[in-house]
Design a protein around this nucleic acid. Sequence first.
DNA 1: GTTGTGACATTAT
DNA 2: CATAATGCCACAA
Length: 109
Amino acid sequence: MRAEALEIIWRTVVAIPRGEIATYGGIARRAGMPGRARLVGHALKAAPAGLELPWHRVLGAGGRIAFPKGSRLYAEQARRLRAEGLEVVDGRVRNSGAPDLDMLLWKPQ
DNA sequence: GTTGTGACATTAT
DNA sequence: CATAATGCCACAA
């Protein structure tokens, strides 16, 4: 069951369109496991490199990068996000004028 | 078995 | 804005 859950999470993450973002909690909900945001984080950490998951599109609540500022992964994620046209300022994705982050968040139909 | 830690979230203070 | 308290669950010691 545990391994299945990881696959579901991976597939959910893969489905995030380029240039859009999602949150850990949001992914968990979309994967049918509300309240299990931490599991999403674990799934990403445990993900094989071969999957080429767009893990950089997964952010913490409020569009904040979940890594410690200055860490290697932090810089890497910011770099990749900027490569997709998103603006990253002080560890968070800057939404241009949008009232809520939900406007940038990936909303599955 | 228990405990502490962690790519988290939400609510309350 | 920042902390703290909970809830959540996988994993390592």
